[in-house]
Design a protein around this nucleic acid. Sequence first.
DNA 1: CTCAGCTCCTGCGGGC
DNA 2: TGCCCGCAGGAGCTGA
Length: 289
Amino acid sequence: MPELPEVETVRRGLAPVFAGRRLTAVRLNRPDLRFPLPDGFVQRLSGARVETLERRAKYLLASLDRGDTLVMHLGMSGRFEIDRPAAGAAERPGGFRTRVEADAKHAHVIFETDEAVRVTYYDPRRFGFMGLIETKALGQHAWFKAMGPEPLGPDFNAAYLNAAFAGRRQGPKTLLLDQRIVAGLGNIYVCEALHRARIPPLAPAGGVSRANIAALTGAVRAVLTEAIAAGGSTLKDYAAADGALGYFQHAFRVYSREGQPCLRPGCRGTVARIVQGGRSTFFCPVCQR
DNA sequence: CTCAGCTCCTGCGGGC
DNA sequence: TGCCCGCAGGAGCTGA
């Protein structure tokens, strides 16, 4: 389920246990996630040293000293759990934990490092996937080749988005979810950004004014920055005592708030829900016009 | 090229 | 209480 802020939160939690460490053991509890894991996955990882753990859009990239990069995507329900046997307690850096996910049957991949730290990948729905790609060729790989700019980077700006929206009849909602246009947004943050910028989700993107597009790029940056600072959003959680759950869900202005009052000061609208491309869009029909 | 619709998978919560 | 249905933070594929 994670979008960019959640993946970034996971990255920050995992980096201290992965970066600079050697993988002493890797175990697979099944041969595939969403896609089959590559041939020799375990062998190619075992004994390799992780140099850095970075993020591109919703992907985690662990570059290895052997010239490969371990690429990980959490799909809808992927989650990592760190176990430090010495400390005895488990941490949940991404906070994506439910009663069900706690079930060992969804522990698909287990890494162990030379500090005897165990990192377990859980993914009940198995929409997540992993790959092992030659680092030099990463940019040419199908997963990254056509990927749009990072929404928090310099290439995502009003001029760029203006060009991307020009002449398009699809709504801004659909286009912002397209990772080829901008990479890292998902359903929550697109809904929130459109609301902040007061842009209707359904009207043709080609008709959005330059001023509104400029406001939209600012809104995207703001909502992502705030969400990262909050540790992301945790939708399905139970009261874990470790404090690692994200809390940006309390700052949602429209997402998952159908029938509730619009939170824009002075607006008397009621949040509506429509379906676009099979996904829920939450918006305020009064102020997003 | 663009766009709508469907698919993968499992679990949960609401309504009857 | 139990069952059925709709829905879920993603993204790739098909076919018009």
